[in-house]
Design a protein around this nucleic acid. Sequence first.
DNA 1: ATCAAAAAATGACCACGGTCAATATAAAAT
DNA 2: ATTTTATATTGACCGTGGTCATTTTTTGAT
Lengths: 192, 192
Amino acid sequence: MQKAIQKRKLKTRARLFAAAEDVIERNGYEALRVEEVVQAAGVAKGTFFAHFRDKDALMEILIGQKLVDCFDSVEQGPTPTTVPDIINALAPIHAFMTSERYVFDLILRYSGATAIAEIGPIAMCFERYVRMVAKWLEHAQVRRDVSPDLLADGVQAFAIQSMSLTYCALHTSQSFQNRLEIYLKAWLTPTG
Amino acid sequence: MQKAIQKRKLKTRARLFAAAEDVIERNGYEALRVEEVVQAAGVAKGTFFAHFRDKDALMEILIGQKLVDCFDSVEQGPTPTTVPDIINALAPIHAFMTSERYVFDLILRYSGATAIAEIGPIAMCFERYVRMVAKWLEHAQVRRDVSPDLLADGVQAFAIQSMSLTYCALHTSQSFQNRLEIYLKAWLTPTG
DNA sequence: ATCAAAAAATGACCACGGTCAATATAAAAT
DNA sequence: ATTTTATATTGACCGTGGTCATTTTTTGAT
């Protein structure tokens, strides 16, 4: 028989989150150590893993939450209608995704959920990205020979490609924004 | 003054590679343990790290080598001229990249070299991918309003997107090949 | 209040990647 | 040959993520 979750557990969980956010605030995501978090939270190490499957699971939640915040703020703003506007509108999301190499890699790893049961916040955001952009494209000045959903998928693909090249020393001649603009103009408004 | 590398070192290195390949042959890339490799090679653990910066460095070399083999065999074949042919031609490369989740993630992580000095085999292959596809596109039946280089960049972006979705339970309705074909038709032969 | 059972927390312990001072071996100088 | 110096190897040791049998706390029934 299932008993209800105790308030104690919620409190412990909250303390772990607070401690983790504090640690990250100071040293960034990559430098986070589980040991440091549990000490700051005043609990034993085992407790951490009773709350989170592993370290990555905590990271997924924290980074996912930040991503959700980004999406929320982007969706507050006006609907962009041109390629430069779209890139501008997406900027906060892309900026956070590339704020740390570690963050970018983790997001990529969790962008697809292997099983339906374990669709986490990051995978949800990837879905949301496509839905949001597709909605924009319905009313934007873009090609109409393919569906907005397909176009939105492409925007995501090109954004990821551009962000990846951000970390590549072979492609420093262009900034992220420039590169993405070139890609998206060719993708969304072909003149063939 | 620099003395020459001793033959002994080359032998040890060869033993490490052979042992690692053997271990991978049996259990795949992800399950590889450094301890297992050094035992099979008959050397101490420290020796491993005198030859490779870390475990990933060995993986990059081994996976990079396999990738090079894939590219070599693809470049042996005929030059594809249509979208389905292009997808077919690239199949061996894509197949290897998605042969193991671990392999795919590692390849993505190493696809861009942070510093010019440390461009490894995987980053080289990503360059090669674009060069090869761009060459194909020069003589393929595709749009001409943008450069083959740009088109090839896009092919890479869409291929990665398609491979990523392979690992996502939210997108099982379509196979990798189907999805990529839809993307590439829209990208390479728009009818706007 | 007392007790039984479920939930939560604990910390000693393990697995595995990675380090480094010490040692052994090879090559060059005498 | 002997000595010197650079190169290569060693294995005890460490850091950190993760496990699990045991203990503590909470809850609900009597």
